[in-house]
Design a protein around this nucleic acid. Structure first.
Lengths: 178, 178
DNA sequence: CAATATCATTAACCTTGGTTAAAAAAATGA
DNA sequence: TCATTTTTTTAACCAAGGTTAATGATATTG
Protein backbone atom coordinates (compact mmCIF):
# COMPACT_ATOMS: atom_id res chain seq x y z
CA UNK A 1 0.00 0.00 0.00
CA UNK A 2 1.33 3.43 -0.95
CA UNK A 3 1.34 5.73 2.06
CA UNK A 4 3.52 8.50 0.62
CA UNK A 5 0.91 11.21 0.80
CA UNK A 6 -0.05 10.19 4.30
CA UNK A 7 3.52 10.69 5.43
CA UNK A 8 3.95 14.06 3.85
CA UNK A 9 2.18 14.89 7.09
CA UNK A 10 4.97 14.88 9.62
CA UNK A 11 4.17 12.91 12.75
CA UNK A 12 5.78 13.04 16.16
CA UNK A 13 8.23 10.24 16.85
CA UNK A 14 7.27 8.21 19.93
CA UNK A 15 9.27 5.51 21.68
CA UNK A 16 7.69 3.16 24.21
CA UNK A 17 9.09 0.27 26.20
CA UNK A 18 7.55 -3.18 26.47
CA UNK A 19 4.45 -3.13 28.73
CA UNK A 20 3.91 0.64 28.33
CA UNK A 21 0.54 1.84 27.07
CA UNK A 22 -0.10 4.18 24.15
CA UNK A 23 -3.68 4.75 25.29
CA UNK A 24 -6.05 3.10 27.74
CA UNK A 25 -9.69 2.04 27.41
CA UNK A 26 -11.79 5.00 28.57
CA UNK A 27 -9.22 7.68 27.62
CA UNK A 28 -9.69 10.01 24.70
CA UNK A 29 -7.21 9.78 21.85
CA UNK A 30 -7.42 11.36 18.44
CA UNK A 31 -4.23 10.21 16.78
CA UNK A 32 -3.23 7.62 14.27
CA UNK A 33 -0.05 5.64 15.00
CA UNK A 34 2.22 4.30 12.32
CA UNK A 35 4.40 1.51 13.74
CA UNK A 36 8.04 1.73 12.63
CA UNK A 37 9.41 -1.14 14.73
CA UNK A 38 8.04 -3.26 17.55
CA UNK A 39 4.78 -5.00 18.38
CA UNK A 40 1.61 -3.97 20.20
CA UNK A 41 -1.68 -5.47 21.27
CA UNK A 42 -5.08 -3.80 21.26
CA UNK A 43 -7.18 -5.34 24.00
CA UNK A 44 -10.50 -5.03 25.81
CA UNK A 45 -11.32 -5.57 29.42
CA UNK A 46 -14.72 -7.29 29.21
CA UNK A 47 -17.74 -6.44 31.39
CA UNK A 48 -16.73 -9.40 33.57
CA UNK A 49 -13.22 -8.03 34.00
CA UNK A 50 -11.41 -10.38 31.68
CA UNK A 51 -8.88 -9.48 29.03
CA UNK A 52 -9.51 -10.16 25.34
CA UNK A 53 -7.12 -9.23 22.57
CA UNK A 54 -8.67 -7.46 19.61
CA UNK A 55 -5.57 -7.45 17.42
CA UNK A 56 -1.80 -7.44 17.27
CA UNK A 57 -0.15 -4.57 15.39
CA UNK A 58 3.24 -5.11 13.76
CA UNK A 59 5.84 -3.01 11.94
CA UNK A 60 4.55 -1.10 8.94
CA UNK A 61 0.96 -1.12 10.17
CA UNK A 62 -1.33 1.46 11.68
CA UNK A 63 -3.10 1.60 15.03
CA UNK A 64 -6.05 3.87 15.70
CA UNK A 65 -9.11 3.91 17.91
CA UNK A 66 -11.78 4.77 15.36
CA UNK A 67 -14.57 5.75 17.71
CA UNK A 68 -12.31 8.01 19.75
CA UNK A 69 -10.35 9.49 16.85
CA UNK A 70 -13.33 10.11 14.57
CA UNK A 71 -16.17 10.58 17.03
CA UNK A 72 -14.44 11.93 20.12
CA UNK A 73 -15.73 9.14 22.34
CA UNK A 74 -13.71 7.33 25.00
CA UNK A 75 -11.37 4.67 23.64
CA UNK A 76 -13.13 1.33 23.34
CA UNK A 77 -9.89 -0.58 23.94
CA UNK A 78 -6.33 -0.19 25.28
CA UNK A 79 -3.17 -0.21 23.19
CA UNK A 80 -0.05 -1.68 24.85
CA UNK A 81 3.46 -2.54 23.69
CA UNK A 82 4.40 -6.22 23.68
CA UNK A 83 7.92 -5.26 22.56
CA UNK A 84 9.83 -1.96 22.68
CA UNK A 85 8.14 0.06 19.96
CA UNK A 86 8.95 3.09 17.79
CA UNK A 87 6.03 4.83 16.14
CA UNK A 88 4.87 8.01 14.49
CA UNK A 89 1.93 9.80 16.12
CA UNK A 90 -0.23 11.78 13.68
CA UNK A 91 -3.26 13.73 14.97
CA UNK A 92 -6.33 12.88 12.91
CA UNK A 93 -7.15 16.58 12.58
CA UNK A 94 -3.97 17.00 10.53
CA UNK A 95 -4.99 14.22 8.19
CA UNK A 96 -8.50 15.57 7.82
CA UNK A 97 -7.24 19.10 7.12
CA UNK A 98 -4.80 17.74 4.56
CA UNK A 99 -7.52 15.64 2.96
CA UNK A 100 -9.43 18.79 1.97
CA UNK A 101 -6.46 20.02 -0.04
CA UNK A 102 -5.20 16.73 -1.34
CA UNK A 103 -7.59 14.45 -3.16
CA UNK A 104 -5.15 11.55 -3.31
CA UNK A 105 -5.03 11.39 0.45
CA UNK A 106 -8.77 10.65 0.59
CA UNK A 107 -8.14 7.66 -1.62
CA UNK A 108 -5.40 6.48 0.70
CA UNK A 109 -7.71 6.80 3.67
CA UNK A 110 -10.30 4.78 1.76
CA UNK A 111 -7.70 2.10 1.06
CA UNK A 112 -6.75 1.93 4.73
CA UNK A 113 -10.38 1.66 5.80
CA UNK A 114 -11.02 -1.02 3.19
CA UNK A 115 -8.07 -3.05 4.38
CA UNK A 116 -9.23 -2.67 7.96
CA UNK A 117 -12.82 -3.65 7.05
CA UNK A 118 -11.67 -6.78 5.28
CA UNK A 119 -9.55 -7.82 8.27
CA UNK A 120 -12.50 -7.39 10.59
CA UNK A 121 -14.75 -9.36 8.20
CA UNK A 122 -12.25 -12.19 8.22
CA UNK A 123 -12.22 -12.20 12.00
CA UNK A 124 -16.04 -12.17 12.05
CA UNK A 125 -16.00 -15.19 9.75
CA UNK A 126 -13.58 -17.01 12.03
CA UNK A 127 -15.63 -16.41 15.19
CA UNK A 128 -18.88 -17.32 13.46
CA UNK A 129 -17.78 -20.37 11.53
CA UNK A 130 -14.75 -21.89 13.25
CA UNK A 131 -14.04 -23.56 16.61
CA UNK A 132 -11.30 -22.22 18.89
CA UNK A 133 -9.12 -25.11 17.75
CA UNK A 134 -9.65 -24.28 14.07
CA UNK A 135 -8.95 -20.61 14.75
CA UNK A 136 -5.66 -21.58 16.38
CA UNK A 137 -4.67 -23.80 13.48
CA UNK A 138 -5.47 -21.03 11.02
CA UNK A 139 -3.47 -18.49 13.00
CA UNK A 140 -0.45 -20.76 13.22
CA UNK A 141 -0.57 -21.46 9.49
CA UNK A 142 -1.02 -17.86 8.40
CA UNK A 143 1.03 -16.05 11.04
CA UNK A 144 3.68 -18.41 12.29
CA UNK A 145 6.28 -15.62 12.54
CA UNK A 146 4.02 -13.42 14.64
CA UNK A 147 3.13 -16.38 16.86
CA UNK A 148 6.75 -16.80 17.89
CA UNK A 149 6.77 -13.28 19.32
CA UNK A 150 3.68 -13.84 21.51
CA UNK A 151 3.00 -15.61 24.80
CA UNK A 152 0.30 -18.28 24.89
CA UNK A 153 -1.55 -15.96 27.24
CA UNK A 154 -1.90 -13.29 24.57
CA UNK A 155 -2.67 -15.82 21.84
CA UNK A 156 -5.42 -17.37 23.96
CA UNK A 157 -6.99 -13.98 24.67
CA UNK A 158 -6.87 -13.22 20.95
CA UNK A 159 -8.66 -16.48 20.16
CA UNK A 160 -11.30 -15.75 22.79
CA UNK A 161 -10.35 -18.63 25.10
CA UNK A 162 -8.36 -19.04 28.35
CA UNK A 163 -4.65 -19.87 28.47
CA UNK A 164 -5.61 -23.22 30.03
CA UNK A 165 -7.84 -23.95 27.06
CA UNK A 166 -5.12 -23.06 24.57
CA UNK A 167 -2.57 -25.23 26.36
CA UNK A 168 -4.97 -28.17 25.97
CA UNK A 169 -5.49 -27.47 22.27
CA UNK A 170 -1.74 -27.34 21.70
CA UNK A 171 -1.07 -30.58 23.56
CA UNK A 172 -3.95 -32.30 21.70
CA UNK A 173 -2.36 -31.29 18.40
CA UNK A 174 1.34 -31.72 19.18
CA UNK A 175 0.83 -35.48 19.31
CA UNK A 176 0.30 -35.40 15.54
CA UNK A 177 3.82 -34.05 15.00
CA UNK A 178 5.54 -37.12 16.48
CA UNK B 1 -25.82 10.15 7.09
CA UNK B 2 -26.01 12.31 3.95
CA UNK B 3 -25.98 10.16 0.83
CA UNK B 4 -27.08 12.84 -1.67
CA UNK B 5 -23.95 12.77 -3.77
CA UNK B 6 -23.93 9.01 -3.80
CA UNK B 7 -27.39 9.02 -5.30
CA UNK B 8 -26.65 11.53 -7.98
CA UNK B 9 -25.35 8.35 -9.52
CA UNK B 10 -28.44 6.68 -10.87
CA UNK B 11 -28.79 3.05 -9.91
CA UNK B 12 -30.89 0.33 -11.50
CA UNK B 13 -34.07 -0.50 -9.61
CA UNK B 14 -34.20 -4.16 -8.57
CA UNK B 15 -37.11 -6.06 -7.02
CA UNK B 16 -36.63 -9.45 -5.39
CA UNK B 17 -39.09 -11.77 -3.65
CA UNK B 18 -38.56 -13.37 -0.27
CA UNK B 19 -35.98 -16.21 -0.48
CA UNK B 20 -34.46 -14.92 -3.73
CA UNK B 21 -30.71 -14.25 -3.79
CA UNK B 22 -28.99 -11.04 -4.86
CA UNK B 23 -25.65 -12.83 -5.09
CA UNK B 24 -24.25 -16.15 -3.94
CA UNK B 25 -21.01 -17.05 -2.16
CA UNK B 26 -18.45 -17.81 -4.90
CA UNK B 27 -20.07 -15.55 -7.53
CA UNK B 28 -18.49 -12.31 -8.63
CA UNK B 29 -20.39 -9.12 -7.93
CA UNK B 30 -19.18 -5.55 -8.23
CA UNK B 31 -22.23 -3.54 -7.21
CA UNK B 32 -23.37 -1.70 -4.16
CA UNK B 33 -27.03 -2.16 -3.17
CA UNK B 34 -29.07 0.53 -1.46
CA UNK B 35 -32.11 -1.05 0.23
CA UNK B 36 -35.30 0.95 -0.27
CA UNK B 37 -37.73 -1.47 1.41
CA UNK B 38 -37.45 -5.02 2.70
CA UNK B 39 -34.97 -7.09 4.64
CA UNK B 40 -32.01 -9.28 3.67
CA UNK B 41 -29.46 -11.51 5.31
CA UNK B 42 -25.81 -11.88 4.42
CA UNK B 43 -24.69 -15.38 5.30
CA UNK B 44 -21.78 -17.78 5.05
CA UNK B 45 -21.80 -21.50 4.49
CA UNK B 46 -18.96 -22.65 6.77
CA UNK B 47 -16.27 -25.18 5.79
CA UNK B 48 -18.37 -27.80 7.61
CA UNK B 49 -21.45 -26.92 5.56
CA UNK B 50 -23.35 -24.98 8.19
CA UNK B 51 -25.04 -21.64 7.78
CA UNK B 52 -23.95 -18.56 9.76
CA UNK B 53 -25.50 -15.13 9.37
CA UNK B 54 -23.03 -12.29 9.00
CA UNK B 55 -25.58 -9.49 9.15
CA UNK B 56 -29.15 -8.40 8.50
CA UNK B 57 -29.64 -5.44 6.17
CA UNK B 58 -32.71 -3.22 6.57
CA UNK B 59 -34.31 -0.30 4.75
CA UNK B 60 -32.05 2.71 4.23
CA UNK B 61 -28.88 0.67 4.50
CA UNK B 62 -26.32 -0.57 2.05
CA UNK B 63 -25.19 -4.08 1.13
CA UNK B 64 -21.93 -4.79 -0.65
CA UNK B 65 -19.40 -7.60 -0.84
CA UNK B 66 -16.18 -5.65 -0.31
CA UNK B 67 -13.71 -8.26 -1.47
CA UNK B 68 -15.65 -8.93 -4.66
CA UNK B 69 -16.59 -5.34 -5.43
CA UNK B 70 -13.19 -3.79 -4.69
CA UNK B 71 -10.82 -6.64 -5.42
CA UNK B 72 -12.66 -8.71 -8.01
CA UNK B 73 -12.55 -11.84 -5.92
CA UNK B 74 -15.42 -14.33 -5.51
CA UNK B 75 -18.08 -13.24 -3.03
CA UNK B 76 -17.21 -14.36 0.48
CA UNK B 77 -20.87 -14.65 1.44
CA UNK B 78 -24.40 -14.89 -0.04
CA UNK B 79 -27.04 -12.17 0.09
CA UNK B 80 -30.66 -13.35 0.32
CA UNK B 81 -34.02 -11.64 0.84
CA UNK B 82 -35.85 -12.45 4.06
CA UNK B 83 -38.77 -10.27 2.90
CA UNK B 84 -39.74 -8.96 -0.55
CA UNK B 85 -37.15 -6.27 -1.20
CA UNK B 86 -36.75 -3.21 -3.42
CA UNK B 87 -33.24 -1.91 -3.95
CA UNK B 88 -31.02 0.23 -6.10
CA UNK B 89 -28.06 -1.51 -7.76
CA UNK B 90 -25.06 0.78 -8.37
CA UNK B 91 -21.93 -0.63 -10.04
CA UNK B 92 -18.85 0.28 -8.01
CA UNK B 93 -17.05 1.40 -11.15
CA UNK B 94 -19.60 4.22 -11.45
CA UNK B 95 -18.93 5.35 -7.91
CA UNK B 96 -15.17 5.20 -8.38
CA UNK B 97 -15.32 7.15 -11.63
CA UNK B 98 -17.52 9.74 -9.99
CA UNK B 99 -15.17 9.95 -7.02
CA UNK B 100 -12.39 11.26 -9.23
CA UNK B 101 -14.53 14.22 -10.27
CA UNK B 102 -16.33 14.83 -7.01
CA UNK B 103 -14.32 15.25 -3.86
CA UNK B 104 -17.37 15.18 -1.58
CA UNK B 105 -18.20 11.68 -2.69
CA UNK B 106 -14.87 10.42 -1.38
CA UNK B 107 -15.80 11.78 2.01
CA UNK B 108 -19.14 9.99 1.83
CA UNK B 109 -17.39 6.75 0.98
CA UNK B 110 -15.09 7.31 3.96
CA UNK B 111 -18.13 7.85 6.18
CA UNK B 112 -19.74 4.64 4.94
CA UNK B 113 -16.55 2.65 5.51
CA UNK B 114 -16.15 4.15 8.98
CA UNK B 115 -19.70 3.20 9.91
CA UNK B 116 -19.13 -0.29 8.58
CA UNK B 117 -15.82 -0.63 10.44
CA UNK B 118 -17.38 0.40 13.72
CA UNK B 119 -20.22 -2.12 13.27
CA UNK B 120 -17.71 -4.89 12.67
CA UNK B 121 -15.65 -3.81 15.69
CA UNK B 122 -18.76 -3.98 17.83
CA UNK B 123 -19.46 -7.49 16.59
CA UNK B 124 -15.85 -8.49 17.25
CA UNK B 125 -16.24 -7.20 20.80
CA UNK B 126 -19.42 -9.21 21.27
CA UNK B 127 -17.90 -12.48 20.04
CA UNK B 128 -14.72 -11.97 22.07
CA UNK B 129 -16.21 -10.77 25.32
CA UNK B 130 -19.81 -12.02 25.60
CA UNK B 131 -21.51 -15.42 25.90
CA UNK B 132 -24.18 -16.46 23.40
CA UNK B 133 -26.80 -15.66 26.03
CA UNK B 134 -25.40 -12.16 26.58
CA UNK B 135 -25.25 -11.58 22.82
CA UNK B 136 -28.92 -12.54 22.56
CA UNK B 137 -29.91 -10.23 25.41
CA UNK B 138 -28.00 -7.38 23.81
CA UNK B 139 -29.59 -8.00 20.43
CA UNK B 140 -33.08 -8.08 21.88
CA UNK B 141 -32.49 -4.85 23.78
CA UNK B 142 -30.94 -2.94 20.90
CA UNK B 143 -32.91 -4.36 17.97
CA UNK B 144 -36.26 -5.53 19.25
CA UNK B 145 -38.07 -4.32 16.11
CA UNK B 146 -35.74 -6.22 13.80
CA UNK B 147 -36.05 -9.31 15.97
CA UNK B 148 -39.79 -9.49 15.32
CA UNK B 149 -39.16 -9.82 11.60
CA UNK B 150 -36.76 -12.76 11.97
CA UNK B 151 -37.17 -16.48 12.62
CA UNK B 152 -35.31 -18.00 15.57
CA UNK B 153 -33.35 -19.98 13.01
CA UNK B 154 -31.87 -16.85 11.48
CA UNK B 155 -31.30 -15.22 14.87
CA UNK B 156 -29.46 -18.31 16.12
CA UNK B 157 -27.23 -18.40 13.04
CA UNK B 158 -26.47 -14.70 13.55
CA UNK B 159 -25.46 -15.34 17.17
CA UNK B 160 -23.25 -18.23 16.10
CA UNK B 161 -25.29 -20.93 17.84
CA UNK B 162 -27.84 -23.57 16.77
CA UNK B 163 -31.62 -23.02 16.80
CA UNK B 164 -31.82 -25.64 19.56
CA UNK B 165 -29.37 -23.63 21.63
CA UNK B 166 -31.31 -20.41 21.12
CA UNK B 167 -34.58 -22.06 22.07
CA UNK B 168 -33.01 -23.12 25.36
CA UNK B 169 -31.67 -19.62 26.03
CA UNK B 170 -35.11 -18.13 25.40
CA UNK B 171 -36.91 -20.60 27.66
CA UNK B 172 -34.30 -20.09 30.39
CA UNK B 173 -34.95 -16.36 30.26
CA UNK B 174 -38.71 -16.27 29.67
CA UNK B 175 -39.28 -17.61 33.18
CA UNK B 176 -38.11 -14.24 34.47
CA UNK B 177 -41.04 -12.50 32.73
CA UNK B 178 -43.72 -14.38 34.69
C1' DC C 1 -58.98 -27.79 2.51
C1' DA C 2 -55.36 -31.20 2.78
C1' DA C 3 -50.63 -31.89 2.16
C1' DT C 4 -46.23 -30.44 2.83
C1' DA C 5 -42.55 -27.89 4.42
C1' DT C 6 -40.66 -25.03 7.86
C1' DC C 7 -40.03 -23.68 12.53
C1' DA C 8 -39.87 -24.26 17.56
C1' DT C 9 -39.58 -27.09 21.65
C1' DT C 10 -37.94 -30.67 24.54
C1' DA C 11 -35.09 -34.50 26.13
C1' DA C 12 -30.97 -37.44 26.51
C1' DC C 13 -26.41 -37.59 25.81
C1' DC C 14 -21.84 -35.61 24.16
C1' DT C 15 -17.98 -32.23 23.42
C1' DT C 16 -15.49 -28.18 24.09
C1' DG C 17 -13.72 -25.19 26.72
C1' DG C 18 -14.17 -22.72 31.57
C1' DT C 19 -12.69 -22.85 36.61
C1' DT C 20 -9.64 -23.63 40.25
C1' DA C 21 -5.60 -25.04 42.04
C1' DA C 22 -1.08 -26.88 42.22
C1' DA C 23 3.33 -27.68 40.27
C1' DA C 24 6.85 -27.21 36.82
C1' DA C 25 9.29 -24.41 33.60
C1' DA C 26 10.97 -20.24 31.80
C1' DA C 27 11.99 -15.47 31.85
C1' DT C 28 13.35 -11.36 34.31
C1' DG C 29 15.80 -8.49 37.40
C1' DA C 30 18.58 -7.08 41.45
C1' DT D 1 23.59 -16.08 40.33
C1' DC D 2 19.67 -16.29 43.20
C1' DA D 3 15.10 -14.70 43.91
C1' DT D 4 10.99 -13.40 42.05
C1' DT D 5 7.62 -13.11 38.67
C1' DT D 6 5.45 -14.83 34.73
C1' DT D 7 4.17 -18.48 31.82
C1' DT D 8 2.82 -23.10 30.86
C1' DT D 9 1.11 -27.58 32.00
C1' DT D 10 -1.85 -30.85 34.17
C1' DA D 11 -5.81 -32.60 36.72
C1' DA D 12 -10.53 -32.77 38.52
C1' DC D 13 -14.76 -31.00 38.10
C1' DC D 14 -18.34 -27.84 35.89
C1' DA D 15 -21.29 -25.36 32.44
C1' DA D 16 -22.71 -23.92 27.96
C1' DG D 17 -23.98 -25.18 24.01
C1' DG D 18 -23.84 -29.02 20.14
C1' DT D 19 -26.14 -33.34 18.29
C1' DT D 20 -29.80 -36.22 17.30
C1' DA D 21 -34.28 -37.31 17.31
C1' DA D 22 -39.07 -37.05 18.35
C1' DT D 23 -43.16 -34.02 18.75
C1' DG D 24 -45.96 -30.17 18.11
C1' DA D 25 -46.95 -25.76 16.08
C1' DT D 26 -47.08 -22.62 12.06
C1' DA D 27 -46.85 -21.41 7.40
C1' DT D 28 -47.14 -22.23 2.68
C1' DT D 29 -48.92 -24.06 -1.37
C1' DG D 30 -51.43 -27.00 -4.68
Amino acid sequence: MNLDNLFDIKGKEILKKKKEHVFIQGDKNNSLYFIKTGLLKAYYISPKGKEFVKSFITEGNIAINLSSAYFEKPCTFSLQCIEDTAMLEIPLSLIDAYRKKNHDLSNQVIDLLLEFSLKKEKREFEFLCLSAEDRYKMLSQENSDLLKRLTQNDIAHYLGITPVGLSRIISRNSVSFL
